[in-house]
Design a protein around this nucleic acid. Sequence first.
DNA 1: CTATTATATTCCTGACGAGTAATATGGCAA
DNA 2: TTGCCATATTACTCGTCAGGAATATAATAG
Lengths: 102, 102
Amino acid sequence: MKPTLTAELVAAVAERFRALGEPARLRIVRELMGGELSVGALVDRTGLGQANVSKHLQVLHRFRFVTRRKDGPYVHYRLAGDDVFKLCDIMCGRLDDSASPS
Amino acid sequence: MKPTLTAELVAAVAERFRALGEPARLRIVRELMGGELSVGALVDRTGLGQANVSKHLQVLHRFRFVTRRKDGPYVHYRLAGDDVFKLCDIMCGRLDDSASPS
DNA sequence: CTATTATATTCCTGACGAGTAATATGGCAA
DNA sequence: TTGCCATATTACTCGTCAGGAATATAATAG
């Protein structure tokens, strides 16, 4: 039941939680829930800076939360699966339990 | 479908992901998966400092990932529900997909 | 009461990471 | 080729947070 989860694996899991632990990245993820979008479209919709969006997308892509599709000079990103939906659903559900933690 | 998720709610969700985004806190959570433990027991099992463990437990408790039970001078913590299990299961499952992201 | 143990809190330092501006890279048009 | 547009990367500043030492609080024993 405790398959000797090494420190490296724990760190890897923590890294992935932190990847979803930034409001800017969650806003990007949220926009992508409506379907694939280019970097520029994400910049427009989120109001974040272009360099900022690009870097956040690299983080999300490194951990396979999003996939890339190149289309000429454009790069379209989309959610890589439904894991993000499941994770966000659980977290959002937790907001009900005592909405304002002391 | 997009119930105007405010910036505050996005920030609240991000905060909760970050609460699970620290290796030390994940190690504590992992120990608690075997059942309720006191602070001192967690200090022994994790090798973390006492102040450190106590502070991490406050974070986990603030977001209701763990509950407290006082027993004389001892304080026993336990996982507050199965959300943590579900979240960690999903995240651990993601480790398989390309174990070493560039 | 004092002493001891368990836990919590405060203060401080160091490191990581978000944000921005500037620059680099890549693709396409003329 | 040159020029322009979309995206990526670099360099930098600044805020936040983990960690540890010291201290504070709480509960129990004597």
